[in-house]
Amino acid sequence: MIPEPLPNIRQLLAFYLEAGVDCALSDEPVNRLIEPEIAPAAASAVARETQPPQPVRGAPAIIPPRGEPPPPPDAAIASAREAARSAPSLEALRALLETFDGCALRQTATRLVFADGNPQARVMFVGEAPGRDEDIEGLPFVGRSGKLLDRMIGAIGLDRTKAYIANVIPWRPPGNRTPTPQETQICLPFIQRQIELVDPDVLVTLGNPSTQAILGTREGIMRTRGRWLDYDTGKRTIRAIATFHPAYLLRSPSYKRLSWQDLRAIAKVLAS
């Protein structure tokens, strides 16, 4: 039996790109399947440190203390809430996020993706998280789904000078993976504060994850979309509506008809 030829570099790169691996986290490859080598002196030191102490005759037994438990997720969420409340403006909120280290996504992302558009706009669109193109440019919705969003809002007379666009998660998850519930809860206070500072007349959530996170619903996007809901900032109530994420419409173009109905409803409210 003739063995299959090994893939070349081009084929490996194509495989990794298809799997969602399109960025490197270090300059040198690391084989994590082998045990690291330990120098003899270091190995003997480790052996001495890990060897349990011999009991002294007549001395009381010593019970080793337990290790400190890892900080609970609630601590990171509470820190994010306190930090978000302290931002008096959008500029201050962006500066705060640039240095916020409570979310691990900041360590793997290329740059912060804060927002785009007009902060004085009457309508605000919120998606879930940036992708590869957004991570490179530092702006939300600039890839294929962003181009479709531009066409969608253009159909009702809007563009990025008349709308404000952001995401629940301001950093790209590695490989475009789905953000974890903890990552979403840590980032949620920041987008809530962002909505409060922009203070739009209409809030549009794009897709199921952003709708559930911001509007606090457990219903799927099929049941939520097209319905007007109230979003309370603590200072005023904003009219909110959910619709499909442009990335979903690229995969399922048959739902563009329903999305067009949602856009017409948004245009009607903005015209009133």
Rank of each mutant, 00 (worst) to 15 (best):
A61I: 07
R223A: 15
T211A: 13
T237K: 13
N167L: 10
G216Q: 08
F244T: 01
E134Y: 01
R122V: 09
V202W: 02
L197N: 01
G58I: 04
E183P: 04
R227D: 12
S26M: 06
T108C: 14
P246T: 15
R10D: 11
R257P: 08
P69K: 15
T205W: 00
A59M: 06
G154V: 11
T184P: 05
G157L: 09
A104Q: 12
L96T: 02
R66E: 10
V142F: 03
A24Q: 12
A95I: 05
T211P: 08
G58A: 05
D22K: 12
R257A: 15
P181S: 03
A14P: 12
T110K: 03
D101V: 05
M152F: 02
E219V: 06
Q212N: 13
S145M: 04
D262K: 03
Q51R: 01
P140H: 05
I62Q: 03
V123H: 00
G127T: 15
S89T: 12
S145A: 15
Q107V: 00
A240Q: 02
Q192E: 15
L17I: 07
N118A: 15
K162L: 13
P65A: 12
L188R: 02
E68H: 14
F15R: 15
I153H: 05
D74P: 07
A83P: 01
A166K: 02
M124I: 11
V269I: 12
P5M: 03
L105H: 09
I153W: 00
L17F: 09
P7M: 00
D22W: 12
R144E: 15
P72K: 07
M152C: 04
P174H: 10
L197V: 07
V126T: 07
L188A: 13
E18L: 07
K268C: 14
R227M: 06
L258H: 12
P174W: 07
L93S: 06
Y231E: 06
R218Q: 15
E82A: 14
Q107K: 08
I186Y: 00
W260G: 10
V21Y: 11
Y231G: 05
A76Y: 13
S210F: 10
A109N: 08
D27W: 02
C23W: 08
P40T: 05
Q54D: 10
A247K: 01
D262G: 13
F114H: 04
E128R: 00
R132W: 14
G226W: 00
D150H: 08
A247N: 07
E68F: 02
T99A: 04
R151W: 06
Y231K: 02
D232N: 12
G131E: 07
R223G: 09
Y164I: 09
E134H: 06
W228C: 11
R218Y: 14
P88Q: 09
F190E: 00
L197G: 00
E196P: 04
A267S: 05
L270T: 01
T50Y: 04
D116G: 13
T233R: 09
K162R: 15
C23A: 13
A42M: 06
I221W: 01
P5K: 14
R85G: 14
F244R: 00
P53E: 07
T243G: 08
G207Q: 02
Q261A: 04
F244I: 02
D101I: 04
T217H: 06
D150F: 07
A78N: 06
C187W: 01
L25T: 13
R218P: 13
K256H: 10
T180D: 06
R227G: 08
A75C: 11
A213I: 06
L139K: 03
P53L: 15
T108A: 11
L12G: 10
